[in-house]
């Protein structure tokens, strides 16, 4: 059973095909949705973070790059900067590091998910979207171990299915959903009609 209104953050990992997937989720989000998103999208090291502009233009959560020491706030979505890992501290502030790549990636989804799992425990929702590798699987497993909710994009509908499939193999996944289904699930959490 899902207890409404107890979730304090949503962490999302996406890779190949992630831009379109994130856009679809954002478009389907209610404008009243306020739970902060923390997102790792695999991105080339020297690229501008163009994703911020694209998602902001959709007028849902207010999207920005995560700054070091920043604490996530409701109504905001934070993107890991290119070429930095994004970690969540026990006090829930962000740390950026330039450590080795993890799963060939920096930022790595596992690094975000594993640290966020400890910081948010059962107040966290973890979502793995389209991608061509297996980053995020171990992190999603940890989110589940700490009592969070785990969601994976339905591989059937994913632009690239390896990452969702790897996550389903590795972690105990609560929900396998289409992008629209993911947005509907999230909207439902903040729907005042559903509050206890």
């Amino acid at each position: 059973m899902i207890v409404k209104n107890r979730y304090e953050a949503v962490v999302i990992g996406s890779s190949a095909g992630g831009l379109n997937a994130l856009k679809t989720i954002f478009k389907c989000l209610d404008r009243s949705f306020r739970i902060p998103f923390i997102i790792v999208q695999h991105i080339s090291p020297d690229s501008e973070n163009y994703l911020i502009q694209i998602l902001n233009d959709l007028n849902r959560l207010n999207v920005k790059e995560a700054d070091e020491k920043e604490v996530p706030r409701r109504g905001m979505a934070y993107l890991a900067p290119p070429n930095y890992h994004l970690l969540v501290e026990p006090d829930r502030s962000f740390t950026l590091t330039v450590d080795e790549r993890v799963n060939y990636a920096r930022p790595s989804i596992d690094v975000l998910f594993e640290t966020a799992a400890e910081a948010y425990r059962d107040a966290l929702i973890g979502i793995v979207l389209t991608g061509a590798n297996n980053d995020g699987s171990k992190g999603l497993k940890k989110i589940k171990e700490f009592g969070g909710v785990t969601i994976v994009q339905d591989p059937e509908n994913a632009e690239v299915d390896s990452m969702p499939k790897a996550a389903i193999r590795t972690a105990k996944v609560d929900h396998i959903l289409t992008l629209e289904g993911i947005a509907a699930f999230l909207n439902d959490l903040e729907n005042p009609m559903n509050q206890p």
């Binding site: 970690l87 969540v88 740390t95 590091t97």
Partner: peptide
Amino acid sequence: YSKAHIKRR
């Protein structure tokens, strides 16, 4: 140092 970082290492 950042606790999350130290812990990972």
